[in-house]
């Protein structure tokens, strides 16, 4: 059995606050999580949920209050682990006096890549993220989206086995988001493990083999997106065309666009409804199952967390 690419055990981070830093606030509570080798793992949660804290702990930018973590079987305190890990910080900012090519060259030197490999790799990376024509422009002249692309390039420059991306789609236009999605999928095809945090749930649903949902510093669920939200359809949506008003009771529940209607009905009532629509002269265009989305699952968790927090506040415990 292959060891997980990323593994955390009871990972906890407390931040001191208040007068003389005497109070402690939990940013992350006992995180136990595994990211398997070769998968795309999405880390989703609202702002302040603990996503960036987790990633910073993994990259040793901050230190845990308790717990341990391993990447590729090595403890995160092992500096050699960083040779095989690529990291994109949230809202990346780099040395603005450098051009993208110079920045990549600087990082390639830190990775100790030979001169011949460096040049070729830098050109390839700039091309991959769509910065080949802007590679010699200083980063201070870059837009937010271009900085994000430069950040992606530096994260994968040294051909890492594990890539950790903190909000990689943030600040990108639809084309940029599509390109980042393609890069992530490309990395998976190359056999790499990708873990990324996001609050854009459609991206997670589209890309991830598994997702972890974190709310209030606690991991609330891990699994394949369809597994998390449940496989059972909650309703069926009938899409039909009707010119008259002969099926008035049904039409009251439908959403209308011109002569076309969308109507959601429980599975048990599906065939009866179709019969009624046909009798009224409707032309059925399609009937599709409606499943719960990751967004609904996510919102349920957030609402539950808020309700629990409010209850604790009221009871004073």
């Amino acid at each position: 059995m292959t060891a997980p690419a990323i593994e955390t055990e009871n990972l906890t981070k407390e931040y001191p606050h208040g007068f003389l830093n005497l109070k402690k606030r939990n940013s992350l509570e006992g995180l136990n999580m595994q990211v398997e080798t070769g998968e795309i793992f999405g880390f989703i949660g609202p702002n302040g949920a603990g996503k960036t804290t987790t990633i910073k702990l993994l990259m040793r930018l901050i230190f845990p209050t308790a717990g341990t973590a391993r990447i590729l079987g090595k403890p995160i305190s092992d500096i050699d682990m960083h040779r095989d890990v690529g990291y994109l910080p949230e809202q990346p900012y780099f040395y603005d006096y450098l051009s993208a090519a110079e920045l990549l060259d600087y990082f390639a030197r830190i990775h100790d890549l030979p001169a011949t490999v460096r040049k070729e790799r830098i050109e390839k990376m700039l091309q991959k993220v769509g910065l080949e024509t802007a590679g010699k422009i200083q980063l201070r002249k870059y837009s937010k989206g271009m900085l994000q692309r430069a950040g992606m390039a530096q994260a994968i420059l040294h051909d890492p086995k594990v890539v950790i991306l903190d909000e990689p789609m943030s600040g990108l236009d639809p084309i940029g988001r599509r390109e980042v999605r393609d890069i992530i999928l490309g990395l998976k095809h190359e056999g790499k493990t990708v873990m990324f945090s996001t609050h854009i749930l459609s991206d997670a649903e589209m890309l991830c083999d598994r997702v972890g949902v974190i709310v209030g510093g606690k991991l609330r669920g891990v699994g394949a997106p369809e597994q998390l939200v449940g496989v059972k359809a909650k309703a069926t949506e009938i899409f039909f065309e009707l010119t008259g008003q002969s099926a008035a009771p049904l039409l009251a529940k439908a959403t209308r666009t011109g002569d076309r209607y969308r109507l959601q009905v429980p599975e048990a009532e599906l065939y009866d409804t179709i019969d009624q629509l046909r009798a009224a002269g409707a032309k059925i265009l399609s009937a599709a199952q409606v499943r719960a989305t990751l967004e609904e699952f996510f919102m349920d968790l957030v609402e539950a967390d808020r309700a629990q927090a409010a209850a604790v506040e009221v009871s004073g415990k």
Partner: peptide, 14 residues
């Protein structure tokens, strides 16, 4: 302050 350090310290650099 500028957080340029994040990407640098994530490299194999002590």
């Amino acid at each position: 302050d500028k957080r340029t350090l994040y990407a640098v310290l994530a490299k194999p650099l002590r």
